[in-house]
Design a protein around this nucleic acid. Sequence first.
DNA 1: CATTGGCGTTAACCCGGGTTAATGCGTCCT
DNA 2: AGGACGCATTAACCCGGGTTAACGCCAATG
Lengths: 176, 176
Amino acid sequence: MHFANYVEERGRPLSLGRGEHLFRQGDTSGSVYVLREGLLKAYYLSDDGRENIKSFIQPGELIASLAAVYTGEDCSFGVVCLEPSLIVELDFDALLAETRRDLVLAAEMLEHLLDFSMKKERREREFLTDSAETRYRVLMGRSPELFDQVTQKDIARYLGITPVALSRIRKRSAES
Amino acid sequence: MHFANYVEERGRPLSLGRGEHLFRQGDTSGSVYVLREGLLKAYYLSDDGRENIKSFIQPGELIASLAAVYTGEDCSFGVVCLEPSLIVELDFDALLAETRRDLVLAAEMLEHLLDFSMKKERREREFLTDSAETRYRVLMGRSPELFDQVTQKDIARYLGITPVALSRIRKRSAES
DNA sequence: CATTGGCGTTAACCCGGGTTAATGCGTCCT
DNA sequence: AGGACGCATTAACCCGGGTTAACGCCAATG
């Protein structure tokens, strides 16, 4: 069975309004979510209340706390809705069990994971090798839509800097 | 078939001495490598010659440039041997083809990829939320062996800072 | 044995980003 | 309309890490 069909058959549709949470950091969760429409934000909350953004989730993408669904830990991050969203919820254990019976599904899950891994590798690389300013320019080039969809504050927290620092970077690049 | 058996049957053994490369940044590569024994270092080289370390590979771990083997791009990083190593080389396309026929192998590949993804997520998170000093302390707690195996320079480049900065951090934590 | 070269440490100086705070601007609420 | 709130900008100050360079040490090499 193809993943799309599996989602169709076994998924539970969900609809979230701006500001509502799909799950929160510290929750337990056994679900994987597919975003159909809207926009989500995955973020870490540190002890002192600071927010760092792990990723923005666009329609068509999957989101789950791997540590939570796969090893049973608490969610290491939360997911909140930035724009009214349509989401489909899947039970991870059932999905994993199905991949053990279905070659087509297993192959597609492998593809998804490979894509996911490559994205994570790219982001890891950017943090390791690029300055904040470079990361900003790369992001602008790759996902200009983001700048219309989310606040500059969230962009900054995604880049790993403060809103103040991002404002300075923008000023610098506007001048040059 | 189990992955271990597949490696046994289809893998080509390789042996590398200190300083030899498994592959270099910019190479094309269609292989996945399993480290049997020894120690490898995966690193990015920036235009100005600066080296940033993506990861150290310990016995039992897999290494490949996903972008290279999966999408056919050039390797975005290189892998060099830090200690005399025994390695087994696998053809990625053949492995992927086999997972499309073999449920057991597919399931095991999924597990490997899930583990890999979780590692990448953790490192991404550390860069996003922790200071260099915290990253150093976490690494010391998690992998103390590393400090005997590799130079302080390489540890620093893995943490995303310069050797000078790491030396200062160590001095600070020794004083306190 | 002397030389070379890489590593770790330390110091001095610089710079980018963090912090705090003030200001101005929209948006939402009543 | 009037407040209240959050966001973006800007300034002033601080601090951690980058850069450069000097020094001592050790291992490899002639």
